[in-house]
Amino acid sequence: MLQITIKTFDELSKQELYDLLQLRAEVFVVEQECAYQDVDGKDKKAWHILGYKDTKLIAYTRVFKPGDYFKEASIGRVVVIQNERQHKYGYDIMEASIVAIKNNFNEKTIKISAQCYLKDFYNNLGFIETGEEYLEDNIPHMAMVKN
């Protein structure tokens, strides 16, 4: 079971910020071999959903209120460290993110930009594809919405 912590950017400690940036770089830049600008200026507007196993950050998302990323509330930078994915922590961190949006922003509609190979994972969480596939950072993505 993950221990979930939810913080605004200003509430993050230096260590928490370092850990989440390290996790994102480990998965998105190194594992997925995608050179892109991860530090995109949007972290300051986001709420950060941190998933710990013992004291190690192993799962993470960032969530946005409507208008801060998309017109709708949104979830992004969904990540679970590779050696912990078999435990289904992706579902735990996403469910915590959905609840955080509902509780903090009073929103039910959530939009994501999902990597296409994860379509079934997001379908299982109630997200439905909207529109055509597109490339984001040279990786096939699709817009998905949960109502």
Rank of each mutant, 00 (worst) to 15 (best):
M1I: 12
M1V: 12
T5L: 12
D10H: 08
D10N: 15
E11P: 02
E11R: 06
L12Y: 05
L12W: 01
E16L: 06
E16A: 07
E16N: 12
L17M: 14
L17H: 05
D19R: 07
D19H: 13
L21T: 07
Q22R: 11
E26D: 15
F28P: 04
V29M: 07
V30R: 02
V30S: 02
E31G: 09
E33K: 15
C34T: 10
C34S: 10
A35G: 02
Q37F: 05
Q37M: 07
Q37A: 07
V39D: 08
V39W: 05
D40A: 00
D40M: 03
D40G: 03
G41Y: 05
G41S: 06
G41Q: 02
K42N: 05
K44R: 02
A46C: 08
A46M: 06
A46E: 11
W47A: 00
I49L: 13
L50R: 01
G51A: 05
K53E: 14
T55M: 09
T55Y: 00
T55I: 11
T55F: 13
L57M: 13
L57S: 08
L57C: 04
L57F: 08
I58E: 00
A59I: 08
Y60H: 00
T61F: 03
F64Q: 05
K65A: 12
P66S: 01
Y69N: 03
F70G: 00
K71L: 13
E72V: 00
E72L: 05
E72S: 11
A73L: 04
S74P: 13
R77N: 00
V79C: 14
V80K: 00
I81S: 15
Q82F: 02
Q82H: 08
N83W: 02
R85L: 10
Q86S: 09
Q86R: 02
H87N: 10
K88N: 14
K88T: 14
Y89F: 07
G90F: 03
Y91Q: 14
D92E: 14
I93S: 08
S97F: 07
S97I: 11
I98Q: 01
V99Q: 14
V99D: 10
V99W: 09
A100S: 10
A100E: 15
F105M: 07
F105D: 11
F105S: 06
N106E: 10
N106A: 14
E107M: 13
T109V: 15
T109P: 04
I110Y: 15
I110W: 13
I112C: 09
I112R: 00
A114H: 04
A114E: 07
A114W: 06
Q115L: 03
C116E: 04
Y117K: 01
L118V: 11
Y122Q: 02
Y122N: 03
N123I: 09
N123C: 10
N124H: 13
L125Q: 00
L125T: 00
G126A: 11
E132M: 10
E133F: 13
Y134S: 06
L135Q: 09
E136Y: 09
D137S: 06
D137Y: 12
N138D: 15
I139E: 08
I139L: 09
I139H: 03
H141A: 04
A143T: 15
A143Y: 12
M144A: 08
M144C: 10
V145L: 11
K146R: 15
K146W: 01
